[in-house]
C-alpha cells in the first residue's frame, strides 16, 4: 500500500549526514522497527538541533543537503524515519544505498537542486514549512507564512513503481 507523503518539514542544514548519526549502531540489536522510534537522529552533529525537541516530533518531511544517508547500509535509517512518521526526504543528493533503501521501503527520497534547497531552508527559517507532494505529477509545493513555492522533481520509473507497489519485496515477488 502506498504511504502518505508530505507534511510539516524539519530542516537539517548540513551535508553528509550519515546513517550512524540517524540511528547509532548500538540500537541495531533491535529486531523490530518500532523499537527504534525514540532514537531518531540521536547522534546528529548539528548546532541547535535537539533530537528530543518538538520540531523533530512534529516533522513528517526532512529537508537536507548533499550525500544524505552516507555510510552504513543499515535500513534501520529509513525505518527509524518511517516509525516516526517521516516518509519524505528532500535533499540535494543521497548516498546510493540509503536512497535505494528508501524506495525499497516505499518511501520518497526526492532530489532538488541546491538553489531550491536554499529557498526551502530560507522559508523554514521564517515560518513553519509545510510540503505537499504530488507523486503522479512529480511536483511538490512548499508553503510557509503565506509564501508558496512549486517545484518539479524527477523520480525514475522504477523508483516510482516501488513506491506505488509499497516496496521492492512486493514488486519483485510479483515479477520474479
Amino acid at each position: 500500500m502506498q504511504k502518505e507523503f508530505g507534511g510539516r518539514a524539519i530542516v537539517l542544514d548540513r551535508s553528509d549526514i550519515n546513517t550512524d548519526e540517524i540511528i547509532p549502531a548500538k540500537y541495531l540489536t533491535e529486531v523490530t522497527k518500532e523499537a527504534l522510534k525514540p532514537y531518531l537522529l540521536e547522534d546528529l552533529k548539528l548546532e541547535g538541533f535537539d533530537p528530543d525537541g518538538d520540531v523533530l516530533a512534529e516533522a513528517r518531511v526532512v529537508v537536507s543537503r548533499e550525500n544524505f544517508g552516507c555510510g552504513s547500509s543499515r535500513e534501520h535509517a529509513p525505518w527509524v524515519f518511517e516509525v516516526n512518521g517521516i516518509h519524505t526526504i528532500i535533499a540535494e543528493s543521497y548516498a546510493r544505498i540509503f536512497r535505494q533503501n528508501m524506495f525499497n521501503c516505499g518511501m520518497l527520497a526526492i532530489e532538488l537542486p541546491r538553489d531550491a534547497i536554499d529557498a526551502l531552508i530560507a522559508m523554514a527559517a521564517a515560518a513553519p514549512l509545510d510540503v505537499t507532494v504530488d507523486l503522479e505529477g512529480e511536483k511538490l509545493t512548499a508553503s510557509a507564512g503565506g509564501q508558496t513555492l512549486n517545484y518539479d522533481f524527477d523520480i525514475s520509473s522504477f523508483d516510482k513503481a516501488l513506491v506505488v507497489a509499497g516496496g521492492w519485496v512486493e514488486f519483485a515477488d510479483a515479477r520474479y
Binding site: 547500509s73 533503501n101 521492492w168 515477488d173
Partner: peptide
C-alpha cells in the same frame, strides 16, 4: 555491492 535489508530479503528469496 552493499545493500539494505529489503534488497537482501529479495536476494535471499529470489
Amino acid at each position: 555491492a552493499g545493500v539494505g535489508t529489503t534488497d537482501l530479503e529479495v536476494g535471499i528469496l529470489k
